[in-house]
Design a protein around this nucleic acid. Sequence first.
RNA 1: GUGCCUGUAGCUCAAUGGCAGAGUCCCUGACUGUGGAUCAGGUUGUUGUGGGUUCGACCCCCAUCAGGCACCCCA
Length: 425
Amino acid sequence: MKRIIPPVKGTRDFYPEQMALRNWLYSTVRAVSESFGYQEWDAPFLETLDLYAAKSGEELVKKQSYVFTDRGGDEITLRPELTPSLARMIAARQNELVFPVRWWSFGPFWRYERPGRGRSREFFQWNIDMLGANGAEADAEMVAIAAAFLKAVGLTPAQAQIYVNNRGLMDTEFDKLGIKPEKKADVSGLVDRREKMNAEAWETNAVEIGLSASQLEGLKSILEDRERWRNSEELTRLFKTLETLGFLEYVKYDPNIMRGLLYYTGTVFEAFDISGGVRRSILGGGRYDNLLRDVGGEPLPAVGFAMGDVVISLILQELMLLPKLPISPAPVLVTVFSPELLMESISLAADMRLNGLKVVCYPEAAKLPKQFKYADRMGMRVVLVIGPDEANTGKVTVKNLSNGTQETIDRSKVSESINKILESQ
RNA sequence: GUGCCUGUAGCUCAAUGGCAGAGUCCCUGACUGUGGAUCAGGUUGUUGUGGGUUCGACCCCCAUCAGGCACCCCA
């Protein structure tokens, strides 16, 4: 084999089969987003480094971003996330937009990470946000959208769950334990790591951070108490709204969910695949009421979440929930019997297209078995044949590939016959 | 970034220092106007790459690249 230049590490090639899946995911995301009245939008794929330096974590900017200097000497970044672009664009038109703004987006992002199972350097991400609405009911809508998506792709509550927590509640609980404000970030990080470490190492870590024995015991009892959400008015309203929306079975309170440290201020949530032994994160988000103010806009409450395409595709594939998508967009093949009849076939195909059918015409006269085999492998459902007999009598043979039956009929009745076959499914 | 495992035909994999193979796919024919099934025949390789050891390397050693798994990090 000749040497083929390899693709860039961490990128994926989208052959038609994978492209069909990507588009299917996109269309599902679109359907769910639009059912809640969200508008599609997008930002540039290239942004200045400054945009992320302002508010994203150092890790994301310094180690995980693709940064290059363009010919004009500016530092440019391939966008690693969408929220800073959202904040920038909202802030620029803060006085003319109609609030609350409900926007969604599906596009490519880049992060220079170590590629592995469920992780690539170039990926697609669904982002959906509501800005200008405060309150637990808005948070509930966002969680409901996530649940509606899980349901739309066929994941049951037994396979996927959305775990919800509230930063405000945790803050109050930390206060009760006497954890000082300057320690809260460390403790949040500790909570975030709990699921990933063994119990012993986690407790050692807690002591290193400076928790006393009684604080550690208090923290553990908070993290094991699944009813403490009742102490939070916001969470109480959120769960009530989710019940009314009909998605409560997908949602649970989980005090272990903290979600990094950056811009989240209230409700935080994360959806996991729980069908296997390992909890895999499908999507995550929460309320970030300070971001607009932090990037120089007027204060504006906001809530949203993001979902990468890689993990969800992997999960759906493992659970065999991916739909069988047609290989060829055209279900009809017109065969070419002989060189003399080539124009006859091309003309028939053109006719069928005028009737609104998606049609492929074989490009040359080849042996019929070969052409039928092509139709079969391309997943086509109807094959048309014009041989000398049909050409002389103005007829066409229509074969239904799913059951092997065929009939020879007047050319004028062909499209009707095809439609009947395609409808029969 | 760290450790372990893997890399052989388009694909899935054999070959334990001695002639590189099988299944599948593909092509041809059985079937000169009909796909899937069956049967027969045929093509397919710088064994990831570069060095080294050896009379001789897919096999052993070193390096490198790529992929997988577990950490680390992150969401």
